[in-house]
Computed example of a mutant assay.
Amino acid sequence: MSPVAVSSVAEWTRACSGAFVPLRVHTAAPAFRASLSQVRLGPAVRVTRVVSEASTVFRDQDLIRSQPRDDVLISLHRRGRGSIRQHERTAELGCGSAVMYDAASPYALSFPGAMSEVVLQLPRRTLTRTGHTFAGLTAVELPDSAQLRSLTMLAASIEQPGDDEAEEIGEALVGLLRAVVRGRDTRTPATDPRLLAEGIRLWIDENSADPDLTPERVAANFHIAVRTLQKLFATEGESPAAFIRSCRLRRSRSLLAGGASVSEAARRSGFLDIDSFTRAFKREFAQTPSSVRADGVRAAGVRAAGA
């Protein structure tokens, strides 16, 4: 689905009903704005990025009766606050939370202000092997675990894969969700090590600008031992510390090419010492930070002159 941007409740109702399942929308905002973009991962799995202002989105019994669906949806909340109500329970949504809901029963999603989230959508049948009833799983925040963190990072990072890759990614997401729902022990990684490693790399890349980010903190964040983390990275011939440094250097190079000063690029990339940053940069790119900045400034000047 192509990205959709709307400026009215009626448009948002049509967009959400087309992307997810038939829904109704209410809002008290005088000027409503929202957008979504969806990626289909094979015939059954969808991942949708949603951004909206204050609203209530709900699916009532009349819609269920007239337009039945068997989809399960998982809100992976990124920004703002909200709540999901289903089966006489209410789960709060905040940054980093994940909540499941079921299109076969009435539910309501309420957002008091601006929000953004990633929604994973898949058929009920993909989770039937878990042995759980959906009435007991919905409108309950999914417990934090290495599997959930991997699921969230993978879902949030998906762009538009090729046809041959899309179904494979969809299967990986379903596998991670099954592991989350089973509630396996979070002290050890229960997923495919390659999937867990990819989720960890994505999280590191997103947080590499934090100067306090260390392998020990990464391991603690994913509820695994530092030795386990090192083994995951060793399969690719690198170490967690080297990968953190590489992410910081790539970030700094982008900042320098955009015109940031050497000290600013170092600071905004998580380096506390400029001399150490400069040495690491030269080893990685065979260029000095100042030369990359000069090239970027020069290119920007050429573009401005051409305009």
Score class of each variant (00 low, 15 high):
residue 108 A to I: 02
residue 127 L to P: 03
residue 134 F to E: 07
residue 105 S to M: 05
residue 115 M to D: 12
residue 110 S to L: 05
residue 140 V to K: 05
residue 135 A to N: 10
residue 120 L to G: 06
residue 148 L to A: 10
residue 158 I to R: 08
residue 123 P to T: 08
residue 151 L to E: 07
residue 114 A to W: 02
residue 113 G to S: 14
residue 104 A to P: 00
residue 131 G to L: 08
residue 153 M to P: 04
residue 103 A to K: 01
residue 134 F to P: 00
residue 106 P to H: 06
residue 157 S to A: 15
residue 106 P to V: 03
residue 127 L to A: 03
residue 126 T to D: 10
residue 115 M to H: 12
residue 145 S to K: 09
residue 119 V to Q: 12
residue 146 A to D: 15
residue 124 R to E: 10
residue 153 M to V: 06
residue 152 T to R: 15
residue 118 V to T: 15
residue 109 L to H: 05
residue 135 A to H: 10
residue 153 M to K: 11
residue 118 V to Y: 04
residue 129 R to W: 01
residue 126 T to Y: 13
residue 151 L to G: 03
residue 115 M to Q: 14
residue 116 S to L: 04
residue 115 M to V: 13
residue 109 L to M: 11
residue 149 R to H: 12
residue 121 Q to D: 11
residue 148 L to R: 06
residue 116 S to C: 09
residue 103 A to H: 02
residue 103 A to I: 01
residue 139 A to Y: 00
residue 138 T to K: 00
residue 144 D to C: 06
residue 157 S to G: 14
residue 136 G to I: 01
residue 145 S to L: 09
residue 156 A to Y: 08
residue 157 S to Q: 15
residue 113 G to P: 00
residue 151 L to M: 07
residue 138 T to R: 00
residue 141 E to P: 15
residue 148 L to Q: 10
residue 124 R to L: 15
residue 114 A to S: 10
residue 139 A to N: 02
residue 132 H to D: 10
residue 117 E to S: 14
residue 138 T to A: 12
residue 126 T to K: 14
residue 117 E to C: 13
residue 116 S to H: 02
residue 111 F to N: 04
residue 114 A to N: 06
residue 113 G to E: 12
residue 109 L to Y: 00
residue 137 L to H: 01
residue 132 H to T: 08
residue 118 V to D: 03
residue 145 S to A: 12
residue 156 A to M: 13
residue 108 A to D: 00
residue 132 H to W: 12
residue 148 L to I: 10
residue 146 A to C: 15
residue 151 L to A: 05
residue 156 A to I: 09
residue 107 Y to K: 00
residue 136 G to E: 12
residue 157 S to Y: 13
residue 107 Y to N: 01
residue 113 G to D: 14
residue 111 F to D: 00
residue 114 A to M: 07
residue 124 R to D: 07
residue 154 L to P: 03
residue 113 G to I: 01
residue 106 P to T: 03
residue 131 G to I: 08
residue 132 H to M: 09
